[in-house]
Amino acid sequence: MLRVSALEKRFGGLAALNDVSFSVAPGQIKSVIGPNGAGKTTLFNLIAGTLSPSAGDIHLDGVSIAGLPAAAIGAAGVARTFQQPRVFASLSILENAMLGGHRFHKGGFLACGLGLRHTRREEEKLRARAEKWLDFAGIQSIKHRNASELPLGQQRYVEIARAMATGAKLILMDEPAAGLDETETKELGEMVRAIRGTGTTVLIIDHHMDFIMSLADEVLVLNFGQWLAEGTPSQIQNSEIVIEAYLGSDDDA
């Protein structure tokens, strides 16, 4: 469903990502790993349209999305969660999730200002949709609290509910387990599986090897902006190239 071909991103003379190609099958959990500076977050920014590629192409369900503005890519069905959870701190959790479904409704400035009936019906739908995904993410009971009041771990679930409410086909998760303890990481793994259970494809960056290896269907390894290896978790764990690359930077593996 996602096909990345010969993708390249240069900042000045430096190649942050160089000739990277891979694809993700629908309904798969695919993980991207690699030492710091391997270009993982750059890859995500390119897919999500925050950055535009220097060369290469990205196809989502056969349609090229490379270089499109972020909003267009979001509307095409790519959602993301960020390395540092980025919730809208001044809005309630419910409102955060409602913004996920926002793009499905058309009520414009005039209709909303006039309070036309259809905008109010839309609002109800938006709310119902948001509540469904809050339920899914297990934070329905605290929906009226301000998002900023939550601990980091729970903000992650707000991001997930918000991303799922966009109706995304593909979710990019950038180090979702960062800062979580063992139990929380396990719960998050269950959540990611549940996301796949809805038919949504997941592309996930993480450093926790145990977490990734038990979760991912396939693993892509990047090193210094280059494609290094790709395969099932067990193939990757036994790959000499990968082990070598990781021995060089033992500390962050």
């Binding site: 960020f82 409704h105 905008t119």
Partner: peptide
């Protein structure tokens, strides 16, 4: 009405982070 509608909500979100709002297809 505008302020309490989805438009108002989107604008409040935009002021906190335009890139995040964009990523939601808005």
């Amino acid at each position: 009405n505008l302020s309490s509608s989805r438009i108002g909500r989107a604008l409040r979100a935009i002021r906190e982070g335009e890139p995040i709002v964009d990523s939601l297809g808005i």
